[in-house]
Every structure is written in structure tokens, then in C-alpha cells.
């Protein structure tokens, strides 16, 4: 088996395949990081819009809660299919990549909203009282008092989910988005050994996930040092 691998390797890592894998890697990175970043931004917005002491007016709270509770409970693949068919039904011309990105964003937003809510609620009500009594606007209560104290609670699960989304993007291969997993499948059907194809992307996935997790841990340690006071 090893001889077979060694014989295949130079051909597998040829310039054409590397370029192909590179494009797949770029798509995986874009789906994961861009998707998570956009999703988290929307999620924070949802958390702020849901909070009764921030901007939570009732209709907004109902819609946001419904969205968050639903999207956290649907498997990624099902969400992907829903978005895919929603685009088809609407007749909008969207690339498969866009469909996958929208799915990641919608998922990430729901999870981030819930994490941010937990972070906001970790700040005791008397901190709000003090700020409001001193005439802080809602935005300032949030940005100067509540958010700085929320990060400690919110950051670890956020990075946990970020790593989760990197892995979830492999499901986008099901609709034919050229990301790492799909690339491995294609190369496999072109006659390269499954071990070589999937072994390679396994290493690549690890190389993306591991630094993400480390970054999270380092930020967490820094915040614990600065705001655990």
C-alpha cells in the first residue's frame, strides 16, 4: 500500500491538483471565516434586538426568538437544502457557493445570538442600574459596560462554534460546492487513492481548525487576565 502511495504522490501533488485543492481550500476558508464573521455580526444584532433592556420591542423579540430557536435545531444539511430550494423557487440566480455561504451565515447568526444572549445575561442587573441612573444611553450601556463584561462568557463558545462551522462547510459538498471535501471526492473519482485524497484534506482541515482553536484560547486567557477582575 505504501509503495502505491509513494508512486501516486508526485502525480497527486502535481501543479494542476495543487491549484484545484488551493481553490477548494480558499472556498472552505471563505465559507468558514467569512460566513462565521457575517453570521456572528448578525447574531450579535439579534441578541441586542431581543434584549428587553436594550432594543427589544415585542414584535422584534418574537421574530428573533423564533428564528434563533428554529435555526439552532435544524441540521446543517437540511438548512443547506432549504436555502438551495428557496433560491430555486425565488428564481434568483445564485451560485452554489452563495447558497452555501448564506446557509453558514444563517446558522452562525442563530448560534451567535444565543451565545451573545448568555453573555449579556451574565452581567448582573445592578451594573445596568448604575449605568442607566447615570444617564448612559442604551448603546453606551451596551458598549461600555455590558459588552466588555460579556466577552469572557461569550468568547469560548463562539470559537468552539467557529471550529464547528469549518467542519460543517464539508457538507456543502453535497450540493456540489467546490470546497475541500468535494475536491477530495472529485480527485478520488479521477483515480487517485481515497487514502491520499481524504488523508490530504484531513491534514488541511486540522491545519485550519487547530490555529482557530488556539487563537480562541489565547484571547480567552487575555480577557480572563484583564476583565476577570
Amino acid at each position: 500500500m505504501w509503495e502505491q502511495l509513494l508512486e501516486d504522490a508526485p502525480r497527486f501533488f502535481g501543479p494542476y491538483n495543487l491549484l484545484f485543492l488551493g481553490e477548494a481550500l480558499l472556498n472552505t476558508l471563505l465559507l468558514s471565516y467569512l460566513g462565521a464573521a457575517m453570521g456572528f455580526a448578525i447574531g450579535f444584532g439579534l441578541a441586542i434586538g431581543r434584549h428587553p433592556r436594550l432594543y427589544g420591542v415585542l414584535p422584534l423579540r418574537i421574530v428573533a426568538t423564533l428564528y434563533v430557536e428554529t435555526f439552532r435545531r435544524i441540521p446543517f444539511l437540511v438548512k443547506l437544502m432549504c436555502v438551495f430550494f428557496a433560491f430555486q423557487l425565488s428564481g434568483a440566480q445564485a451560485s452554489l457557493f452563495t447558497v452555501a455561504l448564506v446557509t453558514v451565515v444563517l446558522s452562525a447568526a442563530a448560534f451567535a445570538a444565543e451565545i451573545a444572549r448568555a453573555g449579556i445575561e451574565s452581567v448582573p442587573a445592578p451594573q445596568w442600574d448604575a449605568a442607566e441612573a447615570m444617564n448612559f444611553s442604551r448603546w453606551r450601556v451596551l458598549t461600555r459596560v455590558v459588552a466588555p463584561q460579556s466577552w469572557r462568557v461569550a468568547l469560548p463558545p463562539l470559537f468552539g462554534y467557529a471550529v464547528g462551522f469549518i467542519k460543517s462547510t464539508s457538507i456543502a459538498s453535497q450540493i456540489g460546492v467546490l470546497e475541500l471535501t468535494y475536491a477530495a471526492k472529485i480527485l478520488n473519482t479521477r483515480g487517485f487513492s481515497a487514502l491520499l485524497c481524504f488523508g490530504t484534506i484531513l491534514v488541511v482541515y486540522f491545519l485550519i481548525c487547530w490555529p482557530t482553536k488556539r487563537l480562541g484560547e489565547r484571547l480567552e486567557a487575555r480577557l480572563a487576565h484583564r476583565t476577570a477582575r
Binding site: P126, Q127, D129, Q149, T227
Partner: peptide, 10 residues
């Protein structure tokens, strides 16, 4: 001024 001080912890 509150019973529990309520200083901003951050």
C-alpha cells in the same frame, strides 16, 4: 449610591 456599590467591574 447603591447598597452593593455597583461599580463597573471592567
Amino acid at each position: 449610591v447603591f447598597q452593593q456599590y455597583n461599580l463597573f467591574q471592567n
